[in-house]
Amino acid sequence: MAMYAALLRGINVSGHRRVPMAALRTLLTELGHGDVRTYLQSGNAVFSSPSDDEERLAAELERAIDKRFGFSVPCLVRDGAYLAAVAAACPFPAAELEGRQLHVTYFGQPVDAERFDRIEAADHLPEEFRLGDRALYLYTPDGLGRSRLADALSRPSLAPGVIATSRNWNTVLKLVEMTAPARPADHGADA
C-alpha cells in the first residue's frame, strides 16, 4: 500500500468553505483509505491506499467533499515518493531558511516554463522562483504575505485550468515525513 497526501485548495480560509479535519478524516476512511491523518487546518491529509491512480483518488475525494459539504474543493493527491523528490530537488538552501520564507506550489499537471517568461525576475529581487516537476519553488525572504512575486505568480493566466495549491516549507517537510515508508523497528540490544 502506498502512502499519499491529499492537498485541498482553499478551505478553512477566513471561515469560508469549512471542512473540519475530523470530518475529512472520517470521509477518507469512508472512501476505504487507511492510516488516515490530517495536518493543520488548511487541508492536508495523508492516507494509505492500494490504488496507484492519483488522479482517480483526487476525483473521488473531490466528489465526496462536494456531496458531504455542498461545495467544490480542488484536490491534488501525491504519493510520498513524489513529495520526497520535490523536497530533495529544492533549488534554494532550505536548511538555511525559515519555513515561512520558502514555499512550494504543487500543480495538477506539468506547466510550460515559457508561461512564466513574462515575469521579470529582476523586478522582484530578492524574491525568486524556480520550476520543478509539477511544482514551483518560491523564495520570499519577508514571507508570503508581502510578496509581490507571489501575487504575480498566482495570476490564472500563467497556468489556465491547472489546479495549484501552495504549502510553506515546514508543511512540505511534515508531509514528506508523514508519507514516508515505515522503517522496521530497531531490534538492536539496548541492555
Rank of each mutant, 00 (worst) to 15 (best):
V19L: 04
G161W: 04
E114K: 10
A84C: 09
V19R: 00
V73T: 10
Y39G: 07
D142R: 14
T38Q: 06
A5H: 00
A85V: 01
A6I: 12
R17K: 15
P156Y: 06
H187E: 11
A152M: 02
L158A: 10
A88C: 04
E54W: 11
V162N: 00
V36C: 14
E30W: 05
R78Q: 13
S157L: 04
S154W: 01
L40Q: 13
D35H: 12
N12V: 01
A45K: 08
F71Y: 07
I119D: 00
L57Y: 12
A87T: 03
A189C: 11
C75H: 06
K67G: 13
R63H: 13
M21Q: 05
L131W: 00
D112M: 08
G161C: 12
Q101C: 07
T29Y: 10
V176N: 00
S48K: 05
E96N: 07
L40F: 11
E96D: 12
H103D: 02
E55D: 14
M21D: 04
T179S: 08
C90T: 00
G34Y: 11
P74W: 12
A64P: 08
A95D: 13
K174D: 03
L138E: 02
K67C: 08
P20A: 02
L61T: 08
L125I: 04
L83R: 02
H16M: 11
A94R: 08
Y106T: 13
F47Y: 05
L7D: 01
A58D: 10
G145D: 09
G188S: 15
A191D: 15
D79N: 15
R167Y: 01
S42E: 03
G188Y: 04
R56M: 14
E62W: 03
G145H: 09
